[in-house]
């Protein structure tokens, strides 16, 4: 069940822009409104657009159920590992062990309004990326499973 040529062309053109906008929201989560959950939802919208516009048989070659499952599990695993590393370093669970460290994401931020430094905030960008990966996988998997029930659907 392909949709019309107009819908397919629009989906093809919009897909990279939606993806880039989603990743922008994820990566700038510690500077601008947004974060892992919101950016992941935006990026997943791009996948959903492709899934709705094209026939499930065509999509099956591009994204499989297993790849989405692994993406989701990988995101959650990265998030928990980032939290557990703090315990391994001798501090508390979810301690921000990279902030103000001077290494990666380690620059300090002056108090008050400032334009923002991308290379700051310690573990927060890492956790944003992890949660973003998880949300992309989860949303894509939910939509793929719901579309698998229709006629000629994407059977696992």
């Amino acid at each position: 069940m392909n949709m019309s040529r107009i819908v397919r062309s629009t989906a093809n053109i919009l897909f990279p822009f939606i993806l880039v906008f989603g990743f922008y929201i994820i990566v700038h989560g510690h500077l601008t409104p947004g974060g892992g959950f919101q950016g992941g939802a935006v990026a997943a919208t791009g996948f959903v657009l492709l899934l709705v516009a094209f026939s499930p048989d065509i999509i099956r070659d591009k994204f499989s159920f297993n790849s989405m499952k692994y993406t989701e599990a990988l995101g959650l695993l990265l998030f928990i590992i980032t939290a557990f590393v703090a315990i391994a370093l001798g501090t508390t669970f979810f301690f921000n062990w990279l902030a103000n460290g001077g290494i990666i994401f380690g620059e300090s931020v002056a108090f008050g309004a400032n334009p923002g430094i991308l290379n700051s905030a310690g573990t927060i960008p890492l956790m944003n990326v992890a949660v973003g990966i998880e949300v992309i996988g989860a949303m894509g998997l939910i939509i793929m499973y719901m579309l698998s029930g229709i006629e000629g659907g994407n059977k696992e």
């Binding site: 989560g29 510690h30 500077l31 601008t32 409104p33 974060g35 892992g36 979810f94 921000n96 902030a99 103000n100 380690g106 620059e107 300090s108 931020v109 002056a110 108090f111 008050g112 400032n114 923002g116 700051s120 905030a121 310690g122 573990t123 927060i124 956790m127 944003n128």
Partner: peptide
């Protein structure tokens, strides 16, 4: 928040730190 977590977006600082 800006001293401890080095984050400009305090909401993200609260949510993730």
């Amino acid at each position: 928040g800006q001293d401890i977590a080095a984050v400009n977006n305090i909401v993200t600082g609260v949510v993730f730190d």
